[in-house]
């Protein structure tokens, strides 16, 4: 069995030389059986070697680190944006004091998070380039020269934060949990002793549900990042993945997959750490992700 296609950049060369093609295939190790290729890739991986890009020839690992950091900035930043929107709305509506305000805010958030992220991205670009002329349409990215273009830097983060589709779910989950916790006996008792109910409901009512949602939503946000990086020309992993997929640059794709898996598990790990920190006994019987 052979791989579906060979590196595009090679075969699309105008003077396609079959002999040369075979030679390069051998050089890249693509002439071996697929099982052998996989095992040797695994073996390399164990030794910390992610292989080299077919396209650039540079080691995948250093390439990944470079773009991975950008993607992390984008995902973590957008996660913060999501939480900044979702958490206050959930808190306000869990108090049931201002029904109209909370109803309005919730509706607003639901509509926002129903917007597809690519559409939101193009809309944002359209508004900021065409209407306000704040930066050129095809910008080179956030950094032009030595100056950081803050707006261009923040825009994708905000767009992904709004458009990753998890705002509504975070609001729903957090509000349900918070309402439950606020009606617990121990909150009533805390109130009776004159203490702050927020101090007492923070761990079970906010920290645990938020971490649970963050862990559950990390994969979706990563998925959204691929789109946003494309739309905004953000030099991250998503764009690299896109490019690599077009180029059939397998080592890069494999590396990115591993990297994404690690990020997803970091989300899970953070949840475990928070639960352990909060109280091991309770988190067992408490919420399960």
């Amino acid at each position: 069995m052979d791989l579906i296609a060979s590196p595009k950049s090679l075969i699309s060369s105008p003077i396609f030389n079959y002999m040369k093609f075979i030679a390069i295939k051998r050089e890249l190790g693509l002439d071996r059986g697929i099982a052998v290729q996989y095992l040797s890739w695994l073996n390399n991986l164990i030794h910390g070697n992610f292989g080299s890009s077919f396209r650039t020839g540079r080691p995948v690992f250093s390439e990944l680190i470079k773009v991975g950091v950008n993607t992390l900035i984008l995902t973590i930043g957008s996660l913060i944006v999501t939480l900044l929107i979702a958490v206050p709305i959930a808190i306000v509506s869990s108090l049931r004091r201002r029904p109209f305000l909370s109803w309005g805010l919730t509706l607003f958030a639901y509509v926002l998070s129903a917007l597809p992220v690519f559409w939101l991205g193009y809309l944002a670009i359209y508004i900021f380039t065409k209407k306000f002329n704040l930066f050129p349409f095809l910008s080179a990215g956030a950094v032009s020269g030595s100056k950081l273009n803050w707006l261009y830097f923040l825009l994708p983060i905000i767009v992904l934060g709004i458009g990753n589709g998890s705002i509504s779910e975070i609001i729903r989950h957090l509000r349900a949990q918070l309402e439950r916790v606020l009606s617990e006996d121990y909150i009533k008792a805390a109130k009776a002793k004159g203490a702050s109910i927020w101090r007492h409901s923070f761990k079970e009512g906010i920290l645990i549900p938020v971490t649970t949602m963050v862990a559950a939503k990390t994969p979706f946000i990563l998925g959204g990042a691929v789109v946003v990086e494309q739309v905004f020309n953000w030099p991250g992993m998503g764009r690299l993945a896109w490019q690599a997929a077009l180029d059939r640059d397998y080592p890069v794709i494999m590396g990115i997959t591993i990297f994404a898996a690690i990020v997803v598990h970091l989300g899970r790990l953070s949840q475990t750490i928070v639960f352990a920190f909060v109280n091991p006994q309770i988190s067992e019987k408490g919420e399960d992700a």
């Binding site: 006996d185 121990y186 009533k188 009776a192 004159g194 203490a195 909060v278 109280n279 309770i282």
Partner: peptide, 21 residues
């Protein structure tokens, strides 16, 4: 200034009235 200071209260189910965390 009244709750917990001038009047304080104990409850029926002490286990659930204490903060488990």
């Amino acid at each position: 200034g009244v709750r917990g200071k001038v009047i304080s209260m104990i409850f029926q189910n002490p286990k659930s009235a204490l903060n488990p965390f």
